[in-house]
């Protein structure tokens, strides 16, 4: 059995980190993104694979709902992530929490963030 895991952040993951760091300058934002990328890549393969499947599904979901709303661009914003955080579906909640935790930790350690997210 071989588990295929992505080598870098998937589009949904990138969009989520973007949404959680949109108040940072470009340099800090890139550093936070690189940290989250490295942290996800370093995870045990089965956990990374599970996260990736959810990211793909959520990415597809945001695109479909955007189309249903007359072609609006898919938006992964803080509000969407908050809704995931409160989702009754455990894996979705954990998925949102994971991305939020990695981003939060990095923005405070790397960016010395004053805003506090």
């Amino acid at each position: 059995m071989t588990v295929l895991v992505p080598r870098s952040l998937l589009a949904f993951e990138r969009a989520a980190v973007d949404a959680l760091t949109d108040d940072l300058d470009r340099g800090d934002r890139a550093r936070v993104m690189a940290y989250v990328d490295g942290a996800l890549a370093a995870m045990p393969e089965h956990i990374r694979a599970g996260v990736a499947v959810e990211s793909l599904a959520l990415g597809a979901w945001t695109r479909v709902t955007a189309l249903a709303h007359w072609g609006r661009t898919a938006s992964v914003d803080a509000e969407f992530l908050d809704r995931l955080d409160r989702s009754p579906v455990g894996p979705l909640r954990q998925h949102a929490r994971l991305l939020r935790s990695l981003t939060l930790f990095a923005r405070h350690e790397i960016a010395g963030d004053e805003a506090g997210a």
Binding site: D82, D85, R97, R100, S101, L104, F105, A106, R107, H108, E109, G112, E114, A115, G116, A117
Partner: peptide, 24 residues
């Protein structure tokens, strides 16, 4: 207790985390 760890520990009870972090 570093800054990053404080932010993480605050995050679960989320709505008030950002304000609380101002006084980390």
């Amino acid at each position: 207790n570093r800054r990053g760890q404080v932010a993480l520990a605050l995050a679960d009870a989320s709505p008030e985390a950002a304000t609380a972090m101002a006084d980390w």
